[in-house]
Structure formats: structure tokens, C-alpha cells
Amino acid sequence: MKGAKLQIVRRYRASPDKVFAACTDPSIMARWFGPKDFRVTELEADMRAGGTFAFRMVGPPGEMAAEGTYETVEPPALLVHTWRWTKGPPEYPPDGVTSRITYEFSADGTGTRLTFTQEGLLDQEEADSHKQGWSEALDKLGAILGEPQ
């Protein structure tokens, strides 16, 4: 896939099954998706290859929304989906780019190593912006999993 790429690696003390579930259960996803100052207002996910997702969140710049299609759902090791912004405030309008997000879950001692990769972003500036947002979201995921902050 062409375009800029970002990668974030995190280790959680929870099992791969538990981390995978937190990344695929819409009721849990709604608690951690989005940067720290954002709140998810809607999240729907049909968690199967070919299934779709859509979500909306509200934060300081306003409402933002994205959608995508699940390409691979292999519990508890791999989750891959597309990502496309569908709504944003004037300073962050949707760019029309469809990127791909891959979550790789692997046992790491008594916990899980999560490798999060987003590729196909417009440019490095967008990749850096997404990295900040996803880093904050993955911090929120850690809090849900009982990680110290």
C-alpha cells in the first residue's frame, strides 16, 4: 500500500484473548477509540471478514466520523480493516484517503504485545497526527485492561 505509515507497539499485561476482545467488542471499543479528549457517540461493528464498521466521536475540534471494512478477523492473533474519514470539522476535513489498519496480537510472557500499524496515509504529517491520536487511544485501552498510567 502506498503512502505514509505509522507503527505503535504496546505491551499489555492481559492475555491475547482479552486484548483481542477489547479491540473487537463494540461496547468496549466505544470506551477507548479516539484521542484522550474525545468521546465516542456512536460505534457499530460487524466483526467478520467483509463486515463494516462506522463510528462518530466528539472532541475539542468538533465531531469526526470514520468507517471501514474488516478484511481479516483471526482471534486472538490478527485484525485488519480499512479506515476512511467521513466527517470532520473545517480544520480537519475528510481527505478521501482509505488507509489500512493492522492489529497483531502475540503472547509476550504473561501478557500481550500489540503491534498497531496504519499504512496508506496521505503524507508524513497525517501519519504523525494519527500516531498521536492512536497513542492516546491505546493509552485508554491500557486503562481499560487495568494497566497503570
Score class of each variant (00 low, 15 high):
residue 141 L to K: 01
residue 111 G to R: 09
residue 89 P to V: 05
residue 63 E to L: 12
residue 66 A to F: 07
residue 85 W to K: 02
residue 128 D to N: 11
residue 137 A to D: 05
residue 87 K to S: 12
residue 138 L to F: 01
residue 47 M to W: 08
residue 101 I to K: 02
residue 149 Q to I: 10
residue 138 L to T: 02
residue 137 A to M: 03
residue 136 E to T: 00
residue 77 A to I: 12
residue 143 A to H: 09
residue 84 R to I: 13
residue 94 P to A: 06
residue 131 K to C: 01
residue 130 H to C: 11
residue 121 L to C: 00
residue 99 S to N: 09
residue 92 Y to R: 10
residue 103 Y to F: 15
residue 100 R to C: 11
residue 70 Y to T: 01
residue 107 A to I: 11
residue 117 T to R: 09
residue 131 K to L: 02
residue 131 K to P: 00
residue 136 E to G: 00
residue 132 Q to E: 15
residue 133 G to T: 08
residue 141 L to T: 03
residue 131 K to D: 01
residue 123 D to Y: 12
residue 126 E to C: 13
residue 127 A to V: 02
residue 91 E to K: 10
residue 141 L to S: 06
residue 50 G to C: 09
residue 51 G to C: 13
residue 116 F to V: 10
residue 76 P to C: 05
residue 75 P to S: 05
residue 55 F to G: 04
residue 104 E to G: 13
residue 81 H to A: 10
residue 147 E to V: 03
residue 56 R to N: 12
residue 121 L to I: 08
residue 127 A to L: 03
residue 67 E to G: 14
residue 71 E to S: 12
residue 54 A to P: 08
residue 112 T to Q: 07
residue 50 G to V: 09
residue 48 R to E: 14
residue 62 G to A: 07
residue 90 P to A: 10
residue 142 G to I: 00
residue 108 D to K: 03
residue 146 G to V: 02
residue 71 E to A: 14
residue 80 V to P: 06
residue 47 M to S: 10
residue 87 K to G: 15
residue 94 P to W: 04
residue 97 V to S: 06
residue 135 S to Q: 05
residue 48 R to Y: 06
residue 58 V to W: 13
residue 51 G to S: 08
residue 51 G to Y: 07
residue 53 F to P: 05
residue 120 G to P: 12
residue 103 Y to R: 14
residue 53 F to M: 04
residue 53 F to C: 12
residue 58 V to P: 08
residue 141 L to Q: 00
residue 58 V to E: 15
residue 141 L to H: 11
residue 65 A to T: 13
residue 119 E to A: 07
residue 127 A to C: 02
residue 71 E to R: 15
residue 82 T to F: 09
residue 133 G to H: 01
residue 124 Q to N: 12
residue 142 G to N: 01
residue 117 T to K: 13
residue 131 K to M: 00
residue 75 P to K: 05
residue 87 K to E: 14
residue 57 M to V: 08
residue 86 T to C: 14
residue 147 E to T: 01
residue 138 L to S: 07
residue 67 E to K: 15
residue 56 R to T: 14
residue 65 A to L: 05
residue 124 Q to Y: 03
residue 60 P to G: 03
residue 140 K to C: 11
residue 101 I to E: 01
residue 123 D to V: 06
residue 53 F to S: 11
residue 121 L to W: 03
residue 132 Q to M: 14
residue 144 I to P: 02
residue 129 S to P: 01
residue 84 R to Y: 14
residue 64 M to P: 14
residue 97 V to P: 02
residue 62 G to H: 06
residue 115 T to E: 14
residue 109 G to D: 06
residue 116 F to K: 07
residue 79 L to W: 03
residue 50 G to D: 08
residue 128 D to H: 00
residue 54 A to C: 15
residue 111 G to F: 13
residue 52 T to E: 14
